[in-house]
Nucleic acid binder design. Structure first.
Lengths: 218, 218
DNA sequence: CGTCGAAGTTACTCACGCGTAATGCTACCC
DNA sequence: GGGTAGCATTACGCGTGAGTAACTTCGACG
């Protein structure tokens, strides 16, 4: 009936542990991103992974463990993707711009990863929420450092700490929100998204209305 | 044994339906905001409400119905709070500022309402997510209208539609993110929060670094 | 060619939590 | 004071889904 029957010697071969773990994690991310932690069932995950349920338990542990493994893997991927795109010797605004581009490229390519990290991870009370929140805080502090650095470069100095943390939280939120928006508008490129955000937060509406435009300077 | 026994004629009086419904909704918002939709149990809600479970079912219907009722009540509260603070004949930036202040005042006062609306509502797939998303889209469009209005006032006209929707999505996200941040910093007043955001999105980092400050003009 | 171990499965237990049937209690009205 | 209507509870049915025990199959290595 199914196409699998056409190649009897190759049907569902015995695979090494590492490969199965990868398959399981992929399936888990997919299912968690669709239904959220609680509504996702281990049966469905095992089904999507093409593996029976006990395999998941022997390889990855409990449902909570599995979710944790997903979160950690995807968070690492995201951070690596962003760091890969950043160049520390550029001026602050250019660093921010490159970071944003990498971020939007990642979200577009791994939308399920992003969904799990952003939406679902917070709904599981306890350790995971803390873990993800922590990552977010690190991102915020990184941005804050950029902004303050931009300030000191121009000689603002002490007063530049005006509200750095709060502002950075707002900026990160803006970036995340725009990422969600972009999920429904796949035709917008990462460069355009990053530019919009730079125009908004670097120049502000006021300058924008006056006709000013921020452009990458490199 | 318990203190309740000390006053036999007043123990747990019979209350009219409207009052019980209010109590149940209050309890439901509290529990949903703490655990999320799936992890919240009807038993705990009935416990917190001080009412037995069948009352919830006879008055408010199923768990999903109950959640819907919560969402609708809190969303209405939020929108009314914001509209109460807005004055349509002011210039766009002042309108935005007043809207933001009302918003932050609401979040501070009804943090559980905000949590349910912002975090939990999206995790229940289907009708509620759509409903909340819809409210959010209305907010975004409102902001977009403000920005475009600011643009046309200054004569930018057609070109002002540059990326209005995306920018507004980012701005709303920034406001929400700052609201979350403010939950951990209760000492910051709504006026300060709103001012930070105005400085960020109206002036931008660049002006901020130069020492420019946005202030309410009224 | 036998056997040891890792890969893999079927079929179950058990607890939790939604929803309800059956029933009681009290206030109010005629 | 007797009946009716709505407030309220206890105790249970029942499905779903996490986690596991017991068993099977395949490949590798001497």
């Amino acid at each position: 009936m199914s196409e699998d029957d056409q190649r009897p010697p190759e049907r569902a071969r015995r695979l090494p542990r590492a490969v199965r773990e990868r398959q399981i994690l992929d399936a888990a991310v997919q299912v968690f991103s669709r239904h959220g932690y609680h509504a996702a069932s281990m049966d469905e995950i095992s089904d999507v992974a093409g593996v029976s349920k006990p395999m998941i338990y022997t390889y990855l542990g409990s449902k909570e463990d599995l979710f944790g493994a997903c979160i950690r893997r995807e968070a690492t991927r995201l951070l690596e993707a962003i760091q890969a795109g950043v160049q520390p010797d550029l001026p602050p605004d250019m660093q921010l711009w490159h970071g944003l581009r990498s971020f939007y490229r990642f979200v577009a390519e791994y939308r399920e990863s992003w969904t799990v990290l952003h939406r679902q991870a917070l709904t599981v009370g306890g350790a995971f929420a803390a873990e993800v929140t922590d990552m977010r805080v690190r991102a915020i502090q990184l941005v804050a450092a950029l902004v303050v650095s931009a300030g000191t470069r121009k000689g603002v100095g002490e007063q530049a700490e005006f509200s750095g943390e709060g502002l950075s939280a707002a900026l990160v939120g803006a970036a995340e929100s725009l990422a969600d928006w972009a999920l429904d508008h796949p035709d917008i490129s990462d460069g355009v998204l990053a530019s919009w955000l730079m125009n908004l937060v670097w120049l502000g509406f006021n300058d924008l209305i006056e006709g000013a435009v921020w452009k990458p300077s490199e």
